[in-house]
Computed example of a mutant assay.
Amino acid sequence: MVQPLEITIERSVNKKEKPPEDQLGFGTYFTDHMFIMDYAIEKGWHQPRIVPYQPILLDPAAKVFHYGQTIFEGLKAYLTDDGRTLLFRPQKNLQRLNRSNERLSIPEIDEALVLDALKQLIAVDQDWIPTEAGTSLYIRPFVFATQPALGVSPSTHYQFMIIMSPVGAYYPEGVNPVKIFVESEYVRTVIGGVGEAKTAGNYAAGLKAQEIAKEQGYSQVLWLDGIHRKYIEEVGSMNVFFKIKGTVYTPSLNGSILDGITRNSIIHLLKHWNIPVVEQILSIEELYEAGKAGFLEEAFGTGTAAVISPIGELSWCDEKLVINQGQTGDLSQRLYDTLSGIQRGTISDPFDWMLEVEGSAPVAVSSKNSNL
């Protein structure tokens, strides 16, 4: 019988000064510790450890630099009013991490071991979890190829790491609507590519278009499919939803769209509320026609970082489409309030999404404030 790996902990003796919670931004500050685990083809995954946050030392020939063999995840921890620490559906993130691993030819990780490591890491740095409304502890697990060799083939050595960052709102607009530029020239990915994996190349491919959109005053890019340049896929790094004549539509998972954890949760909530929700292909022409006819009632992006990001305006081929008079819609606000409430433990969790990190006070959450 294979013995489980023991996670060692080395505590930092030089603690960082914590930033003011009203100045966090997103992904700017990092906690005192990180998790590391190594992989070698002859040993498998080994030496899991929590150590002080520190730079990474890599050989210049490490394959991650030359062939982009790397994947990552993103999830959050929340501190409740009664002092408990909650994680939102972490098992789903680890399952998706392994799907990304498989697509990038990276060895599978032990999800139970990593979940245990994540809990221990959060417990070590628990005082980094911010408490102000709209804040959380963002968690970034990632894997990268470390074998020092040039040659296009999967690496034989890897490192898996988890770093954490106290964060505020992802967009400066917060839960207020953002303006989105519909990208018609560049594409992010195609069916059969790596669009459904969380790999760095997907995001690097979008930087140029995002840069152009911001120069024109837009917060993000709405991606169209890479073949026909007409079917809606994602908005920035988020899944996207549209409420048209009372029914909510979102692009179906086709192999080039990320299977978002928040996306999945929003669909669950909509069905729970008996609001029609349809997963299907949707063209930008159909969306604009619905908007011109007055049928497009709301639009919003969904993702771990922003949770819900209402869309107030689209620009496609120099034609602007204002949605819901540029205001946050009732459904967008209800979804944000409900999902955020579940995550923070202020309303009931009928789906058993939240996982409590051991060591916090086990106080039951009342359902009296639930708006489910």
Rank of each mutant, 00 (worst) to 15 (best):
S165W: 09
R229A: 06
L104N: 04
K368C: 13
T247E: 15
Q327H: 14
E183P: 01
T135G: 07
G201K: 01
A169N: 08
Q47H: 13
G341F: 04
A149S: 15
F30V: 14
Y78E: 01
E358H: 13
Q23I: 08
L94C: 08
D349G: 04
N369C: 10
E196Q: 12
E196K: 04
V167L: 04
I261W: 04
K43T: 12
G246V: 07
L335G: 02
N176G: 09
S12G: 12
A145N: 08
L372T: 11
G27L: 07
V13E: 15
I275D: 03
P154Q: 11
Q343I: 07
I7Y: 04
N176W: 07
W128D: 04
I275G: 02
R140N: 08
M1P: 02
A361S: 15
Q343H: 02
R140Y: 01
V248H: 05
Y171R: 03
P60N: 15
R140M: 07
E111K: 03
P276S: 06
K292Y: 13
G236I: 09
E111A: 13
T302Y: 07
I139V: 15
D110H: 01
A133H: 09
I191Q: 13
F181A: 00
A197I: 11
F30L: 08
S155G: 06
S105T: 13
P362S: 10
M238W: 02
N264Q: 09
T250A: 10
E21D: 10
K271F: 05
A290V: 11
G25A: 12
Y67T: 12
L121S: 03
E313C: 05
V307I: 15
E285D: 14
I275C: 08
F26C: 02
M34L: 10
D318E: 12
K15A: 09
K15D: 05
I71F: 03
K214H: 11
T70Q: 14
R140Q: 02
G201A: 15
M37K: 00
A290K: 00
I212Q: 04
E196Y: 09
I109A: 07
R11Y: 14
R263I: 07
V175N: 10
S256M: 06
G312R: 00
N239H: 06
S12R: 09
G25E: 11
I163M: 09
A61I: 15
P19C: 03
S283I: 10
S340Y: 12
F144Q: 02
R188I: 06
G294T: 06
T346G: 05
L339M: 14
S153R: 05
G192Q: 07
I50M: 06
N369D: 15
P52R: 03
T346S: 10
N369M: 08
R96H: 02
I56K: 04
